[in-house]
Structures are given as C-alpha cells and as structure tokens.
C-alpha cells in the first residue's frame, strides 16, 4: 500500500485532470443537452426529428465507439478540435490548449454522449409539469420560448435535478475511458502507468484511483439525496 503515499503526487495529478475533464464535460453536456431537449419538445416537427435522432444515436451507441469516432474520425476529417482552445479557459484547463489533441477529442466524445442523457433528464422534468400549465401560457399569447422560460422550465427543474445528478455521476465514471484514448495522466491512465510501466501491484493502485473517483461521486450523490429529501417535504 506504500504506493499510495510514495506516489501521492501522481494520484493527485490524475485526480486533478479527471476533475478538469469532468467539469468541462458536465458544462458542455448540460448546454448541449438543454439545446437538444428544446429541439425535442419544440412545436416544429423537423426540429423535433433532429432532437429525437440525436438522442437515438448517442444514447444507444457505446461510449467506447463514440470515443473511437472522436479520436480517429476527427483527425481523418482533418480536425484537431482547435475550436476548443478557448482563450482564458485554456489558462485554467491547460490541456485544452496543448498541441496534442486527445484531451479535446475525449472531451467532445464525453459531451456528445452525455448530452443525450441530459436531454432526457430535462425532458422528464418538463413532462412532469401538468399540461394545463403550458396550455394556460399559450392561451395568454406567450410564445413557445416565453412559455418555456417563464412557466414550464421554472417548474420542471425540480423534477429534473435528481435524474440529472445521476447522469453526471455516470459521466464521471465514464470518464475513466479517456485514458485509453490518448489522454495521458487522468486517474485511469495513472493506474495503467503505475502498474504496467512502473511495476506496482495492481490492487493498491486500483484502491487509490477508486478513492479518487469516490471523492468526486459520493459528495454529489449525498447532495442529490439532500435535494430529494427537501423536495419530499415541500410536496
């Protein structure tokens, strides 16, 4: 078990990189998922079709395959995902700005995949709002956008927040895949590095990285439990 102390800085570095990709992917997936959700509930049939197609593709494809497409497909198309070198952001999240594009590719895959689940979590919240609320808003002459903004969404987030949290927890665990698609130094790739290259015993290393993931997921789960309890009282 001495590896946990001897290599603490390596674990901490892996934790930090995994945290970075998870924060970025969560932000991206929430934004993209919200856009897809709006498409899926839009009154315009072609927009609905686009939203539905998106969810059907990315919810039903293994994340590994999405990662493959991002890591091999994007370079084949001649893209290094340079649009993610966002000035300012790349000062905090240094990997966004590196010449090696694998962090950006993995981020894209994680965002695309998770957004489908975010969309469905948001939509389940919207569906939990009684239909009469939206009908009353339409009857007053509110447009689709105003209806969502002032009437439906303020009431739907309560029903969305817990499934949304589960989606983010799943995403944090899914991020363990990025180490196998060229991202060097995240928690899962750290394990590979310490065991294969440096010859440490597997089980202590696995315990180390498990602790890293649990530090991110357990507090999030506890927070969701608290929110759920408060809602139960409010109801």
């Amino acid at each position: 078990m001495s590896v946990l102390i001897d290599k603490f800085d390596v674990f901490a570095g892996g934790f930090w990189l995994t945290l970075q990709i998870c924060v970025l992917a969560a932000i991206g997936a929430l934004i993209l998922g919200a856009i897809v959700a709006v498409l899926r509930i839009s009154p315009v049939p072609p927009l609905r079709a686009v939203g539905t197609a998106y969810v059907n593709i990315f919810r039903n494809m293994p994340l590994t395959v999405v990662m493959f497409f991002a890591a091999f497909g994007l370079p084949a198309l001649g893209s290094n995902a340079d649009f993610l070198r966002i000035p300012g952001m790349d000062a905090v999240f240094t990997r966004l700005g590196t010449d090696l594009p694998y962090f950006r590719f993995a981020l894209i895959a994680l965002v695309l995949y998770t957004a489908a689940f975010v969309c469905e979590a948001l939509r389940s919240g919207v569906n939990a709002v009684p239909a009469g609320q939206a009908e009353a808003a339409r009857s007053l002459g509110l447009t689709f956008g105003q209806n969502l903004r002032y009437v439906v969404l303020p009431q739907s987030w309560k029903a969305s927040i817990v499934p949304l949290g589960s989606v983010i927890i799943a995403m944090i665990k899914n991020s363990a895949l990025v180490g196998f698609f060229g991202v060097v130094g995240d928690l899962s790739q750290t394990a590979d590095q310490l065991t294969s290259a440096e010859g440490y015993a597997f089980i202590p290393v696995a315990i180390g990285i498990s602790i890293g993931y649990l530090i991110m997921t357990v507090p999030l789960g506890a927070l969701l439990d608290r929110i759920e309890k408060r809602q139960a009282v409010a109801r």
């Binding site: 609320q133 009353a136 009857s139 002459g141 509110l142 447009t143 009437v151 009431q155």
Partner: peptide
C-alpha cells in the same frame, strides 16, 4: 400567439401558474 392574447380562456382545472403568486399570474 397574438390571436390567443385577444381571446381569454378559463379552464376547468384553473391552470394557474403554480410557481407564481396570484398577482404575478395576472401580470405575466
């Protein structure tokens, strides 16, 4: 939407906006 704003509608189940006060319901 403009036409609907000129036709008032009252429902069997009231459908007041549950997250807004009565006054906010009327002014929205």
């Amino acid at each position: 939407a403009k036409l609907r704003s000129e036709v008032g509608m009252v429902f069997q189940s009231f459908n007041l906006f549950a997250h807004k006060t009565i006054l906010e319901n009327v002014t929205l």
